[in-house]
Write a protein that binds this DNA or RNA. Structure first.
Lengths: 132, 132
DNA sequence: GCGATATATATCGGCAGCCGATATATCCTG
DNA sequence: CAGGATATATCGGCTGCCGATATATATCGC
């Protein structure tokens, strides 16, 4: 969008890896859990994201294990990955805050509640002052 | 990604329209301003987003003005648009919070700071948030 | 033992969405 | 008159997500 701005899928993969290394399938389940079931990463999405993040140096292959005959390929965040995720989280929080603030400003503009027709109250004096 | 989950461009367009109706070019400048210059929507992006949001019933054409020979097409949020934006802001804040929390958990796992070999200070009590 | 399900990897084609380039038109400044 | 800001709109290309598909092993129920 702007300079680089990561995709949603990439954000959630990084978030899933933020506390500890995980393997592909584990990331899928972890993303679902940490988002309260709202975000369901698809298998077809995962490996493309993993490749791109690796190419960008945000994650690295941590180790490979063979657990009961099944291969597990564990990835972990690099320092750069942590910093990038942190910055993105900051941006998202700022964006969410801006949206919330503006919704409130918009509600102040037009008579939303419509409790009783007569006089309108002084339209909320100082609120939302700064707005960044 | 999941069910619907709007795109970043759509989110910022909705946010720009949250406080008052604006026309296309005004949205472009407003998004840049409200994001502190970090997000630069392109003209080529805008109209596709506007069409999609209109088709989804999240915005509507408010009015058309001719200001000094230049046409201005103003859009505004519908009630559905406000609700959708609000929900998305909530999701983003939750995601940002989850990422921050997990980064902190990850840092707790491995000895991050390494300031001086002896005793490490109590790891900075409340800070973390700072930097922005 | 066999089929279904879960775990675990990987690839490919299609489609949606963002961007750069381009086009048109008016107004202002130098 | 040239250049830039304002203001609209379109199109081709590339990136990225998803659904489908393939392969392989372990587990559980029947």
């Amino acid at each position: 969008m702007t300079a680089k701005s990561m995709t949603r899928a990439a954000f959630f993969v990084l978030t899933a890896l933020a506390d500890q290394p995980r393997h592909g399938y584990g990331i899928l389940r972890e993303v679902e859990e940490l988002s309260d079931g709202e975000v369901l990463l698809r298998v077809g999405t995962l490996y493309g994201v993993l490749d791109r993040l690796t190419a960008d140096g945000l994650i690295v292959l941590d180790r490979e294990e063979v657990q009961q005959g099944r291969l597990r390929r564990y990835y972990r965040l690099t320092d750069d990955g942590v910093a990038t995720l942190d910055a993105e989280a900051e941006r998202m929080a700022a964006g969410a805050g801006a949206a919330k603030r503006r919704i409130a400003e918009g509600r102040a503009a037009h008579p939303a509640p419509r409790t009783s027709p007569g006089h309108v109250p002084p339209a909320a004096p100082g609120l939302a002052g700064g707005h960044a």
